[in-house]
Each structure stands twice: as structure tokens, then as C-alpha cells.
Amino acid sequence: MKSNRQIEHYVAPIEETPLLATDTLKVDAAPLSLWADAWRKLRRRPLFIISALMIFLLLVVAFFPGLFTQTAPDDNCQLGDSLAGPSAGHPLGFTFQGCDIYSRVIHGTQASLTVGVVSVIFVLIIGVTLGALAGFFGGWVDTVIARIGDIFFALPLVLGALVVTQLPFFRENKSVFTVVMVIVMLGWPQMARITRGAVIEVRNADFVTAARSLGVSKIGTLVRHVVPNALAPIIVLATMELGVFIVTEATLSFLGIGLPGSIMSWGNDISAAKDTLRTNPEVLMFPATALSITVLSFIMLGDALRDALDPKSRKR
């Protein structure tokens, strides 16, 4: 229905609306790769700066405890010092056994971080490999890996750990190694799932098909194009899981099925201090605070990384 109304013909002054060449390349800044872009965003985030500094400090404490305390953690424990308050050279007081709390907290860092880092490395190796293969090849490879993953996934971590640690081998060889084994055994399916999902998302991208039609082999495309583009969620999960695994170790130690008492660990110390919670809560609170701050650092780092690596936040 076209009406007969008079419609005026308006033309904007050309000097006010100059015509630019179509589709000119206008970039003035330095080239910006995905990682450079993420780093630029990260270094302005307080959450990232705080957590990165914290983690650096924790690593120093873990590797060079001697820099922070001269007192050995388990020698020189005098029952006469049992639950004594702070004194010169012993800023946090003493445990029920008469050991220096400050020294124990410092020396406990190493076990927690070792378990966390080593577990994450193994979970990454197993989970990313299996997840990437399942996601990329699909078909029966996917079905087999997914089903095996489901079986381990259906075993909640603490429950599964309870069973595994009942086995004579684990009971008799309690060590950092057995705890890592338990965590890796029950922790890899989560990583495999995330990797699989990320790989499937990238697998059908046009640039993967383009690489295939250039003559790049299947494994070549997987390694050179698919996995690098699926890394973001994997990195985020790995960082978060570092925190989660440290909590898991502490929980297992707390339940008496984690690290042996001979290894200095926050979980063991919290467990030992629970009996005197009502009279001397500080004995429990110091290792608990150290544990919480460590976990918080990794969780915060993961959160900051998630924001920075989010592909949705990338300009197009």
C-alpha cells in the first residue's frame, strides 16, 4: 500500500558525512595475540595480582622453609610447652604435643603444594589426552573413554578415596605418592570431560576443515589447531583443581587416610588440634587459615583467568 503523501528527499551535507574507503585496515597498536590480549587484561585485575603474588610467596615458603623459620617442626617438642601461648621465637604458640605452631605451619606448605601440583600435572596428562582423543575422533573411541570416565565419575571423590585407601597397598605405603595416586585416579574424568567438550566445540570450526584440506594430517590438526584453541577452559579448570586437590589432601589427612603423621601437613595438624578446639581454638585456626589462604589463591587465580580467557569477551 503506497500512499500519495509527499515525501521529501533529504541529502546530508557531504562534508559532515565524508565517505571512507570501504574496509580499510586500521590498526595502530602492536599485534595482539590471544595470550597477549589475556595478559593485558590480567595485569590490570587486582584479583589476579593478589593471587599471583600469594602463589609466588607460597612457592618460596614451600621450597625454602628455612628462610622463614629456624625452628625444626617436630624435633624439640617439649610436652611442657603443651598449648602454651606465644613467646619469643614462637610467635603462634605451641600445639598439644608442645611443638612450635609457626614452624609447623611453614613446613606444612610443602606437602600441600606438592600434592596439589603433582596431582594436577598427572590429571592434565591423562585427562587432556583422553578427552582430546574422545572429542576429536568421536565414534567408538569416544564411547569407550566416556564410559570409563563415567564409571570413575560415579564414584564421588571422598567415597572413592575411602575405598582405595582401605587396600593393603595404600594402607601400608601411606605417602605423598599414594595420596596423589588416589586423587589422580578419581580426578581425571572431570578434566577429560571439559577437554572433550572444548575439543568438540573447536573440532568443527572452519579453520580445522581448512587445515585438513591443506593436507595437514588428522593428528597434526588436533595438535596444532584444535588443542591450542581448546586450552582456555583446561587452564582454568587446572588452576581451580589445584585448589580443590589441596583441600582433598587435607580432608583425607584429616580423616586419617591421607598423608602419614610423619609428613608435616596442615590436614594432619588440624585433625590433631580438633580435640582441644573448645579450649584452644587457635591451635586449629592457624593451619586452617594457611590452608584456606592457599586454596583461595588458586581459586582466585582460576577465576581471574576465566574472565581473561573467555572467548566471548574477545573483540571480533
Binding site: 515525501i7 521529501e8 528527499h9 533529504y10 541529502v11 546530508a12 559532515e16 558525512t17 565517505l19 571512507l20
Partner: peptide
């Protein structure tokens, strides 16, 4: 075009 009305008419 680029946020401006440059021309309008029947």
C-alpha cells in the same frame, strides 16, 4: 552510514 542519516526520500 556510520551513525548518520546520509540520505532519505521516496
Amino acid at each position: 552510514y556510520r551513525g548518520n542519516v546520509v540520505e532519505a526520500g521516496p
